[in-house]
């Protein structure tokens, strides 16, 4: 299949899009910002008969709050997330993750739906969504279903979405004023880099203390999918998050990950970095918390 032989369909509504996904017999692939799609097309990996261009499906582009729930449309770009006051207030960890994606051009073009659907173990928004306990809404002509972000990913590039389904919404609960989060990324350089390891942390703090009542920790690029660090999470509530405690929690991270060696880094370095990023992230988060309390 030559690139010049690929055609494009541009539905004007979600319904039209779902109709195409349901009934078109040729091979199809959705196209959002194209920042993953075009790269893979050039590499010869993704050469569908038709691109289904989501550009005009405006109903997939939103950031709203419904009762206790924050909802993000899959077509929302990383830049839109970064610049959203609502998300800055309620999803610092996701805003920070989007700030670490590529550089400005990629943030302007790339979408959160595309980042999730590509299902790269190194995708930067995914650990943040784990840490927020997000759910993903999938829609097909026959209806909608909600799926926990942690159940959505099956392996590198593999998700629970069926060919006739589209990611239609990403949602998570509104967070309280003592809920804080941080995203940490280690790449081979500061911009335009694929994570060697990344980590997302959300904590619920007890006012006026260094104590934490609960939290979520997730690592990327250290396994076939993003990994939730439950042992570390359990340690969060064992006592005040002193520097020593933080170092201890960091050390445990080493045991929660199962990385591989590749061109970017060795497995053993990745292991050490899971610990380092968690320790560094918790330290920075607690520092911010202390400053905020003052």
């Amino acid at each position: 299949m030559f690139v010049s032989e690929i055609d494009m369909l541009s539905p004007r509504s979600l319904k039209e899009c779902l109709f195409i996904l349901e009934n078109e017999k040729s091979s199809l692939r959705l196209l959002a910002g194209g920042t993953d799609a075009v790269v893979r097309m050039k590499e010869g990996k993704w050469r569908p008969d038709y691109w289904v261009n989501l550009k005009h499906v405006d109903e997939l582009r939103f950031i709203t709050i419904q009762k206790d729930e924050i909802q993000i449309g899959p077509l929302t770009t990383h830049s839109e997330i970064i610049n959203s006051p609502l998300l800055q207030a309620h999803a610092d960890v996701l805003v920070q993750a989007c700030q670490e994606i590529g550089a400005t051009q990629m943030q302007n073009m790339g979408t959160i739906g595309g980042n999730i659907a590509t299902a790269s173990p190194a995708g930067d928004t995914i650990p943040a969504l784990y840490a927020l306990g997000a759910v993903i809404e999938l829609t097909s002509l026959s209806g909608k279903r909600m799926i926990n972000v942690e159940d959505f990913f099956i392996g590198p590039g593999k998700t629970a979405a069926q060919p006739n389904e589209i990611i239609s919404k990403i949602a998570f609960n509104v967070r309280g004023k003592n809920d804080i989060g941080i995203f940490q990324k280690l790449g081979p350089r500061k911009a335009q880099s694929i994570s060697i390891v990344n980590a997302a942390v959300t904590l619920s703090m007890k006012q006026g203390t260094k104590e934490c009542t609960g939290g979520r920790i997730a690592f990327g690029s250290v396994g076939p999918t993003v990994i939730r660090a439950k042992k570390c999470e359990a340690m969060l509530t064992l006592g005040p998050l002193t520097d020593e405690m933080i170092a201890n929690i960091g050390r445990v991270a080493w045991k929660e990950v199962m990385p591989i060696s590749d061109i970017r880094a060795s497995a053993s370095y990745r292991r050490d970095m899971a610990s380092a990023l968690l320790e560094r992230g918790l330290y920075r988060l607690l520092k911010r918390w202390a400053e905020h309390e003052e």
């Binding site: 550089a103 081979p188 350089r189 500061k190 911009a191 335009q192 061109i263 970017r264």
Partner: peptide
């Protein structure tokens, strides 16, 4: 090393 994805050049941030 295949292209600029994994050949790491300094950017303006470096």
């Amino acid at each position: 090393t295949t292209n600029f994805t994994n050949y790491i050049l300094p950017t303006i941030r470096e």
